[in-house]
Each structure stands twice: as C-alpha cells, then as structure tokens.
Design a protein around this nucleic acid. Structure first.
Lengths: 229, 229
DNA sequence: TTGGCTTTGTGTGAAATTTACACTTTAGTT
DNA sequence: AACTAAAGTGTAAATTTCACACAAAGCCAA
C-alpha cells in the first residue's frame, strides 16, 4: 500500500513575536519585508519550516537569519491557520513568542539596519498578514504568564535591582504596584540571590543587585510550589 | 515573479484529546486505527487538514467523522512537529483538547462500536505516534485552566449539583476539597443560577440543581474579573 | 562642606481572605 | 418508626493582603 496522502498541502511557517524591555515600555522587534506580498511593510520575523527541522529549530533559525538573535527565551504560542490569511495560498503559521535581555535589545537597536527595528508595543506600525492578531495574542500570553511564572527575568539583565523588576511588572501588567509590598512578595520566595555588587546610576543611592535562581525554582516547582506575583 | 515556495512540504493533521467525566474519574476517547502505521493500535481521533478549511473546522470535522461527536467545547492545545513523530514522513499535528458533557459521554459509551472507546485517563492503553505526550500536555492544560477559568461546567450536564461540581474538581486537580469552603467560594461569584428542580438519586436528601451563567461570566470578565477556585 | 536632589530601602496595623472543622436536615428504604 | 446516606449550613483562628511615610545613601553643585 502506498503512503501517499490524498490531501493537497499548504505551506508551513513560523512567526516570532520578540519582546524587549528598556526600562520604559515593552518593545517588539519587526522586520521590513523585502518581497511580495506586503513588500515594504512591517512584519513579524519568521519563515518557512524545513522538512528536516523541528518547529522550535525553525523558529530559532529564522530569528537568527532575519534578526541575528540567538539564545533567547522561546516558547510556542499558537498556530494560525485560517484559509486566506496569506493572499497567495494556504499557509499555516506556528507562532512563537520570545523574550530578550536588554544587552541584546540594545545591541540590535544600535545596529541601525533599517530592515529590523524595535517598536513600542503600543505604537506599532501597520503589519502584514494577520500579524496584528498574533502580536495581540502574544501580549495577552505574556501578561498572563508573568503573574504565574518567573519569566520576567528573561527581559532583564542577569543582574538586576528590585526597582527594575518592579518597573517591568508594571509595564507588562499595566498597573502600578506598591514598592514595599512588591519587594516583600518577590523576596519571600527566596528565588532571588542578593549579590555583592551594587548598581550605581546617577547621583542617587545605589541599588542592591540580585540574580534569579532558576535551579531552585525548578526544584520548588517539582514540589508543587506555585510562583505568583 | 513566481509565488512557488522553495521548501518541500510535510503534511498537516489535527488530533483531539477528548475528555469526559462520569462522576468518578476523567476519561479519554480513543479510536482504534484501521490503517497503517500503527494499524490496530489506539490513537487520538484526528486526521488531515483540508486546504479550504480552518484548523478548528478540521478538528470538528474529524471529531464528527471518527467519533460522531458534535458541538463540544474545543480549544487549540499545542502543535507537535518533531521530524520523525510519524514514521512515514514529516507530519505536523495541531493538537486540540475537547470537553464533552455526560449525556454525550454516556451516549458514546453505549454504542459499543469497538473502534471508539472511552478509557480511564490513568489507565490508557499503548498509544500510537507521540500521542502519549499529547495526552499528557492536554491533562496538564486542563488542570491549569480549571483553576482559573470556568470550563469545568463543560464536563457536567447543564444542570448539576454542587457535589457533582466538587467531585469534578477533585478528580481533575487530584486533591480533596473542603465541602463548605468549596460551596462558599463557587457561590460567591454569583455565576451559578439555582434552579427550582432538585436532583434525586438514591435514598438520600435530594440536591439543589444549578446552572452556570456564561453571559454573566463574559460580562464580568470584561470588567477584569478573575474566576478562581 | 554643606545643602539639595533623587532613588533605595524598610515596618506596622487594619482589612480581607482562607482555612479547619461537626452536626442537622432530608428523603428513601426496610 | 427507625435506619441510611448524602445535602446543607456557620464560626473562630490563622494567614495574607493592603495601605501607607520617612530615613539612608550617594552624587552634584554652590
């Protein structure tokens, strides 16, 4: 018996919503399309999946090829497959969301390649395809996850101050948080390792730096611990 | 310029993890494969996506064709795309999870078609492909969602007693819950409409029946309300 | 060196929520 | 009429959340 399938095939792509944080608001990385359709318009980085690679690999490869980004936090988001979402033919896209640290963010912002640029999440330009919908879902997911999983650290430098962490939470969740209560809570889990170093910046009191302890988190998680801000 | 893509294409399928609840434990609906590969083994209901249909439509169609189920709660779960997950060639599968009410569950359990059967979630037979992994993820997702979204009602009859609701939560979450505290909490949201009718069953005190008010939930959700058990 | 600026860092009491816990009511069966 | 089994109900203690204000540190400029 033959293994040939009787169904016609569409194409399969991956698209990545890459978030960055610069201390102010959330940013999203977009690329300017060099080819039709939507040539010259902004779009999410992404592209076709090769037959011999996994979806995650495809997402990482496209991110690397189109934006130069490597070793970022990457997680599958949702698969978009409405017929007609690509004007050419049936294209199903597995969307990912990615979080990058400020070092990376600043690096990419510096190289003024005008075909890859950071935009404020709430001031995005017109986007190709159904990419606005994808970005919207990624934003919702990020907001939802931040409350229950310690992924915010992926948007900060390895060493960060509690104020920086708080600014991040305020930016993503869109609400102001009480400084004392916030610090009490995040420190209560014992997942932040206080470092010797201090962060100095401007003519102010320098801030204690911390780093997140992912191993300890994994260990606690195994015992049913639930991170929650 | 031509719109022909330079990448070879794999096939695209949908697979559904269908959960049912009979007052005892969680059940999963499986079908016996009639064709190779894995002919004669149990597998998740699912099949190939047609070019002109959306992914959701494909999932509903396959469910209908293979199990007769219609009008079920259906939500996209995750997309599985490891090369090699299908021994024939590259097949990417968009997995869904579905929740069915006991009426439906009992109906399907009655028709003793031996090519579609309910199994206890914790006593599943050997499964084809990477379906064990898919079931595992669906179970996790169900557990996670149940705490924060009122989807448990999709596994109960339209009219249900508070005890039935509690048994469901206990079965899915795997922990015993305090009767009084549970009732206090679920009723505090004012999302359950008490009905005139009573449920009688056995030589016991009959139970007050309720139904869930989805409209009110949608309204509250719009105002930032968070359901939580 | 002094005063001013700006950010870090810290504690407490009131209010709200969560938790633990046991007995009465109801209907059916014998 | 007595027995059985599940439904239904309240309170007090413990814990968590929330609101809130001022001293300490370092830099800069006069």
């Amino acid at each position: 018996m033959s293994y040939t399938y009787q169904y016609p095939r569409g194409a399969l792509t991956v698209d990545c919503v890459v978030f960055g944080f610069d201390g102010g608001g959330l940013k999203v990385l977009l690329i300017k399309r060099g080819i039709a359709p939507f040539k010259g318009e902004w779009a999410l980085p992404g592209g076709f999946v090769k037959v011999e690679e996994s979806l995650d690999e495809a997402a990482r490869r496209e991110l690397q090829e189109e934006t130069g980004l490597e070793r970022v936090f990457l997680e599958q988001l949702y698969t978009f497959g409405e017929p007609g979402r690509d004007p050419r033919e049936r294209v199903v896209s597995v969307a990912y969301f990615a979080l990058v640290r400020p070092e990376v963010y600043q690096m990419r912002a510096a190289t003024d390649a005008d075909d890859a640029q950071w935009f404020d999440l709430d001031e995005l330009p017109r986007l190709a395809f159904d990419h606005p919908e994808i970005v919207e879902m990624a934003h919702q997911r990020l907001r939802g996850k931040l409350r229950y999983e310690p992924i915010g650290f992926e948007l900060l430098a390895e060493k960060f101050s509690l104020s920086q962490l708080q600014y991040l939470y305020e930016a993503v969740l869109g609400v102001p948080l009480d400084k004392r209560n916030f610090r009490k809570k995040v420190q209560s889990y014992d997942l932040l390792i206080p470092l010797e170093e201090k962060h100095r910046d401007g003519p102010h009191r320098p801030a204690q730096l911390f780093k997140f302890d992912p191993d300890k988190y994994q260990e606690l998680k195994g015992k049913g611990f639930l991170f929650e801000i």
